Computed example of a mutant assay.
Amino acid sequence: MPGGRLTQQERHRIAAGLADGLSYAEIARRLERPTSTISREVSRNGGPAGYRPQQAHQATVRRARRGAPAHPLVDRPYGNAAEEEIVELAVSSGMPRMTARVHVDLLLSEDGRRTAAELTRRLQVSPASVSVAVNLLVQYGYVRRERDPQRRCDVYAVDDEAWYHSIVISARQTLETAHAAMAAAEAFGPDSPVGRRLVRGGSFLERVIGDMRESADRWRPLLT
């Protein structure tokens, strides 16, 4: 796997990959580079929509000459390579990219709390994008919404209990699917091929979710 700084040719290939709509992970695979290298390169040089390989190469040369010190994570805008790596993992598991970015930014904040305005500024996106993302996170139990009476605004918070609540919500939704499958089996007839298939699938989901809930309840004290 190549190491060291990206070459100018690699930067042109990154730009081509972005233009083709490829993910950071796919671009990284084609260049035989870590995904974090690609995400960091793009985020530091205009983002996916504004990335220009020639300007990115020149900016890297200038930074190397200056030897500018890095700022602490808490003072920098979004774009740290570790953050981008976690975002890519969340996206690969099915979470929308903007939702993943908001979630990771909250997870890595000092106290796990940010206002919508803070998220908008750090992620450099529109308030509407942040609103859609946090609403989805709240819906699935990853984040809770609190009211700050002093600043008269909502604060979005994530803590260790969020992991438990997200599992409970996911389990409940999957259990609803299991029950729907069993109800459909009755409509088709439990002895029909379709009915038997639905009963087996529903029973499987029902038992797996039962085990998951018991495990979550048993290990919940680890979060406190």
Rank of each mutant, 00 (worst) to 15 (best):
G3C: 02
R5H: 10
L6M: 15
T7C: 10
Q8A: 15
I14L: 12
A15T: 10
A16S: 13
A16Q: 12
R29T: 08
E32F: 05
R33C: 11
P34E: 01
S36G: 08
T37P: 02
S39H: 04
R40F: 01
E41V: 07
N45P: 05
N45I: 00
G47R: 07
G50W: 07
P53K: 04
Q55S: 06
Q58F: 14
Q58A: 09
A59R: 10
T60I: 04
V61D: 09
R62Q: 10
R62C: 00
R63P: 00
R63T: 04
A64N: 06
A64W: 14
P69A: 06
P69T: 07
A70I: 13
H71M: 03
H71Y: 04
P72S: 00
P72H: 06
P72W: 08
P72L: 05
L73M: 09
V74K: 02
R76G: 02
P77H: 09
Y78R: 07
Y78A: 07
Y78Q: 05
G79D: 02
G79C: 06
A82P: 00
E83A: 08
E84V: 02
E84K: 05
S92K: 05
S92F: 05
S93D: 11
M98I: 09
V104P: 04
V104C: 01
L106I: 14
L106F: 03
L108T: 01
R114K: 13
T115M: 10
L119H: 05
T120A: 12
T120I: 15
T120D: 01
V125G: 00
S126G: 03
A128T: 14
S129G: 09
S131R: 09
S131E: 10
V132Q: 05
V132F: 13
N135W: 15
V138I: 15
Q139E: 12
Q139K: 15
Y140V: 01
R144T: 10
R144D: 10
R147P: 00
R151D: 03
C153I: 15
A157V: 15
D159R: 06
D159F: 15
W163T: 13
Y164T: 00
H165S: 05
I167V: 14
I169L: 03
I169H: 00
Q173N: 12
Q173C: 13
Q173G: 11
Q173D: 15
T177H: 08
A181N: 14
M182G: 09
A187M: 10
A187H: 11
G189D: 12
G189N: 11
P190C: 13
P190Q: 03
D191A: 10
P193L: 13
R196S: 10
R196C: 06
R197E: 09
V199W: 01
V199E: 07
G201H: 15
F204K: 06
L205C: 14
L205K: 12
L205H: 12
V208W: 00
V208Y: 04
M212E: 14
A216I: 09
D217T: 02
P221A: 02
P221M: 13
P221I: 11
L223M: 07
L223A: 01
